[in-house]
């Protein structure tokens, strides 16, 4: 087939502005069309992006009840909350003591123990290492508990104390304390 009658650029060539200035009606049309198209694409893209955020049923499942009665002093349980482990530990007085005796100046992420618990005996923390997300050891009595008698993350060697605070190793922050409430003296709801 022969070539076309005009080069593709021809329609853009001649300015259509009556006064012959640089801005033309065509520029205006192009810009407004482009702007509308961009807004339209944005409006269409958002539902797709948002569909990947937690769905309503996922959000509805985001709280977990824990019965504290069966947990003896010195024991801990791991419960699942939002797909992640939560450590609930019944701390004997000496563990609380050890945590409170530590001067804040020794801490990498300074936080007093009192600020991390609602009732002295019960420590509730996310069992997710703040380095890269492994689950630290220390829940079972046979587990290594690290140099500070709390938890030890085997992945890259982070040591946490009896308040779940980072003491040594690459993790930058203390084990996070999730939102929870005592619904009775022996029952908490996480989330």
């Amino acid at each position: 087939m022969a070539e076309t009658m005009a080069p593709a650029t021809a329609p853009h060539g001649a300015p259509h502005g009556a006064d012959g200035s640089g801005e033309t009606r065509r520029d205006f049309l192009k810009l407004t069309t482009g702007a509308f198209a961009a807004v339209g694409v944005g409006v269409v893209v958002w539902p797709f992006i948002h569909s990947m955020n937690p769905a309503r049923d996922v959000l509805a499942l985001s709280s977990t009840e824990v019965d504290l009665a069966p947990i003896a002093a010195g024991q801990a349980v791991t419960v699942m909350w939002r797909g992640k482990p939560v450590f609930v530990r019944n701390r004997p007085p000496e563990e609380v003591q050890a945590a409170r005796a530590t001067p804040l100046s020794e801490l990498k992420d300074p936080q007093p123990d009192q600020a991390r618990v609602q009732r002295d005996q019960w420590l509730v923390v996310l069992g997710v290492c703040t380095h890269l997300g492994c689950v630290p050891l220390g829940q079972k009595s046979s587990d290594p508990k690290g140099d500070y008698n709390g938890w030890f993350c085997p992945c890259h060697g982070s040591h946490y104390d009896t308040s779940g605070r980072i003491r040594r190793g690459p993790a930058p922050l203390n084990l996070a304390v999730p939102e929870y409430t005592f619904t009775s003296p022996t029952q908490i709801r996480i989330g």
Binding site: P47, F48, S51, A55, R56, D57
Partner: peptide, 13 residues
Amino acid sequence: ERIMRDVNYGWLI
């Protein structure tokens, strides 16, 4: 049904 009810904009998609 979950897509229709729970997933954000699932009904639209």
